[in-house]
Design a protein around this nucleic acid. Structure first.
Length: 306
DNA sequence: CCTAGCCAGCGTCATCGATT
DNA sequence: AATCGATGACGCTGGCTAGG
């Protein structure tokens, strides 16, 4: 019997590679993929691929898959790498499902080789851009504005954030924050970055061009006619009340926008995870059927002999 | 080349559940 | 009770593709 053992530091990666390998073959030699990371207990996933396709795993592997070793090889395998009432009624009818995080956690406890959820520390360097900093060195994105990061082999589209200081000699220069999404076509609406910090808010600059939206932070001075309500300040005039409400709404919309984006990303990840699991279980099922078949044959033979 | 259909992604609203 | 994050639903938009 040929057994392929895969060891990965990234369970998500292993899951992907496992399913990739599984989909390569329909029947043949059982392959065991053992996940050794995070928990001490290895997770065994049975799959079936053609012996001749074992080498394909090499090409299916990604950078995170550290080693693939072939053990107990029967053949010569050798591999490396891899609104209204109506609306109300409708909403009532639709039962809310648990969040994807919950489902993922359930899956993780049920089947540890699925995606893991890890907490990351919030950056606290106090710099102006700390909440929006992203690591784009390896194609992955650290969304530090959220306290939870899903570590998986998914690649988040690269985004670029630029902050430029315009000095005016007085030390009170405006800061311009620009965020452009490299994956979006010009004119399709770039991601708008607004971030309220210490009572500051962003004043949109009227230069929207080529998919870039610019906002200016007014740290100390404001243009004429612009009223900025900071935390702790007393609001007296109706105009100020309106401004404050508008500011709050903008902030809420911004947060919800980002939350929706994150939610969709998680949903996609979740679906991917389920698809992988289906592939694994289908192949497991296939293996068991084959095993049952051979055992039946063996039994019949012995029956005939006796 | 034009158009209709499909799909993916996005922003917004409404709502729920957890937290303060 | 107020607030906040998560998420389903809805509508809109742009890209892609097959058919005329």
């Amino acid at each position: 019997m040929e057994t392929i053992v895969a060891v990965s530091a990234d369970p998500g990666d292993l899951e992907n590679n496992c399913s990739q390998a599984i989909t390569l073959g329909s029947s043949g030699v059982p392959v065991s993929v053992v996940h050794m990371s995070l928990s001490n207990e290895p997770v065994q996933v049975q799959a079936v691929i053609q012996p001749t396709q074992a080498s394909v795993i090499q090409t299916a592997g990604s950078q995170n898959l550290q080693t693939i070793q072939v053990a107990s090889v029967g053949s010569d395998g050798d591999s490396t790498g891899t609104e209204d009432d109506e609306s109300k009624k409708r909403r009532e009818i639709l039962a809310r499902r648990p969040s994807y995080r919950k489902i993922l956690n359930e899956l993780a406890s049920d089947m540890p080789s699925t995606i893991t959820v890890t907490k990351i520390e919030e950056e606290s360097n106090g710099s102006q851009t700390s909440h929006d900093s992203q690591d784009m060195s390896d194609g992955t994105t650290n969304l530090t504005s959220h306290s939870i990061q899903y570590q998986a082999a998914t690649v988040v589209p690269a985004q670029a954030i630029q902050i430029a200081a315009h000095g005016d000699g007085t030390g009170q220069g405006l800061q311009t924050l620009t965020m452009s999404n490299a994956t979006q076509a010009p004119g399709s609406g770039a991601t708008i970055v607004q971030y309220a910090q210490d009572g500051q808010f962003f004043i949109p600059v009227s230069s929207i061009s080529a998919g870039n939206v610019q906002y200016q932070i007014a740290p100390t001075t404001l243009p004429q006619g612009v009223v900025m309500a900071t935390a702790g300040s007393t609001i007296t005039s109706p105009q100020q009340v309106t401004e404050e409400a508008s500011r709050k709404r903008e902030l809420r919309l911004l947060k919800n926008r980002e939350a929706a984006r994150e939610c969709r990303r998680k949903k996609k990840e979740y679906v991917k995870c389920l698809e992988n699991r289906v592939a694994v279980l289908e192949n497991q099922n296939k293996t068991l059927i084959e095993e049952l078949k051979s055992l039946k044959e063996l039994y019949c033979q012995k029956e005939a002999q006796s």
